[in-house]
Amino acid sequence: MAEPAANAHQGDDTTRRDFIFIAAGAASAVGVAATVWPFIDQMNPAADTRALSTTEVDLSAVVLGQQIKVMWQGKPVFVRHRTADEIGRAQRDDFATLKDPQSDAERLVQEDGAAGRPEWIVLQASCTHLGCVPTFVEGSSFGGWFCPCHGSDYDTSGRIRRGPAPANLPPAPYVYLNETSIRIG
């Protein structure tokens, strides 16, 4: 705020004047800042998006050695029916040198904390590098998923083994509803 035209009032008046200007200016700044927030926050996910539904998956439709991709909260999720060979590989590699160390059993834990079953693994299907969907490639170096975008290799437990991705494929939160179905979310 520019100074008003100089006039006869000086001294104590200057303090009073400055106080008023500073107070008015500060209050205006607070007002503007408070007004800005709703306009920023409105771009955050809306309530309907946040409360998106859970997804139920019927496991009986997935044959051994196959996987399905289901949509959960707008994102793809792998539900893989692992073969004994895959399970064995995953468990063996618990003790390998891992970029993001985690045991296979830890990765199967259900949302409520109960242990999972080794033949079913539920993973969020986006590469932790830049978000592409990896492909399951039989006979790849680590026997698991391979990201076509920048060549990240994941093992049969979805752990990162080679390539630019920094972390394992995150497990999706799921629980067993009964023997043959799970609920994701």
């Binding site: 705020m1 008003p4 035209a5 006039n7 006869a8 009032h9 009073r16 004047r17 008023i20 200007f21 107070a23 008015a24 209050a27 205006s28």
Partner: peptide, 12 residues
Amino acid sequence: LMYLAYKQVWRG
């Protein structure tokens, strides 16, 4: 506050 500031600016 704005009114006081206004009066202050215009005094004189």
